Amino acid sequence: MKRSKVLQITVIANLTALAVLFYFFPKFPLPFFPGFLEIQFSNLPAIIGGYALGPIAGGAIVVIRTLIKLPFSTTAYVGELVDLLIGLSTVLTSAYIYKRNRTLKGALLGMGVGTIVWVVVAVAANYFFVIDFYVEFFFNGAIEPLVGMASMIPGITAENFMSKYILYAAIPFNLLLSVIVYSVTFLVYKRISHFIDELAKRFQK
């Protein structure tokens, strides 16, 4: 039992370290989205950990990763809060589905539902508090700077900013990012799972 716990802690620690690393690199914007929306893969190790060790382990990776990232925040912690909400809801949902049905079908179902949850939580966060917070905290209540940063969105103005931003940026960006992350998970999970199984056998000796 002790060896099993040690193995779990070891795997969680290593995946958390990867999640923190992926918070910073690779990290890049895409030209057809506002520059403050950046591709980063910090949820990838958490999803893998959730699939391999269960929802609680995956959730722990998200929480610890976020706490480590907080001192480096450039968004007054709001970006980290959103990442925490997206990470927890996505990882817990997909890992729970896979835990109940550890088959290819269960894995794909977890990824599909996890993708939907990811997009819904991201859109809800932007709609209910993220945009308003940035406008008030960073731009003294003026939305025009955000409009300028989102000028690649056709027809965007201060009056229609929220609807245009969600339709042309928040939804497609988070859909694209979640599909990429889950696709990579699908490609590498089996190899990592076999590696963890081999470690478990060694711990049992």
Rank of each mutant, 00 (worst) to 15 (best):
Ser4Lys: 08
Leu7Ser: 12
Ile9Ala: 10
Leu15Met: 12
Leu21Met: 15
Phe33Ile: 15
Ile39Ser: 06
Gln40Glu: 14
Phe41Lys: 14
Ser42Met: 09
Asn43Trp: 09
Asn43Asp: 15
Leu53Gln: 10
Val63Lys: 09
Thr66Ala: 11
Phe72Tyr: 03
Gly79Ala: 06
Leu81Gly: 07
Asp83Gly: 10
Gly87Gln: 01
Ser89Gly: 13
Thr90Lys: 03
Val91Tyr: 05
Thr93Phe: 13
Thr93Cys: 06
Thr103Ile: 05
Thr103Trp: 05
Gly106Arg: 03
Leu108Gly: 09
Leu109Glu: 13
Leu109Ala: 15
Val113Ala: 11
Val113Lys: 06
Gly114Ser: 15
Thr115Asp: 08
Thr115Ile: 07
Val119Leu: 05
Val119Ala: 00
Val123Met: 10
Ala124Gln: 00
Val130Lys: 00
Ile131Leu: 01
Asp132Gln: 00
Tyr134His: 01
Glu136Pro: 00
Gly141Ala: 04
Gly141Pro: 10
Ile143Phe: 13
Ile143Ser: 03
Glu144Ser: 06
Leu146Met: 08
Met149Ile: 10
Ala150Phe: 06
Ile156Lys: 05
Ile156Asp: 13
Glu159Leu: 11
Leu167Trp: 04
Ala169Met: 06
Pro172Tyr: 14
Phe173Lys: 11
Asn174Ile: 12
Leu175Lys: 14
Ser178Ile: 06
Val179Gln: 00
Tyr182Ser: 04
Val184His: 02
Thr185Ala: 12
Leu187Trp: 06
Arg191Met: 09
Ser193Arg: 08
Ile196Gln: 13
Gln204Asn: 13
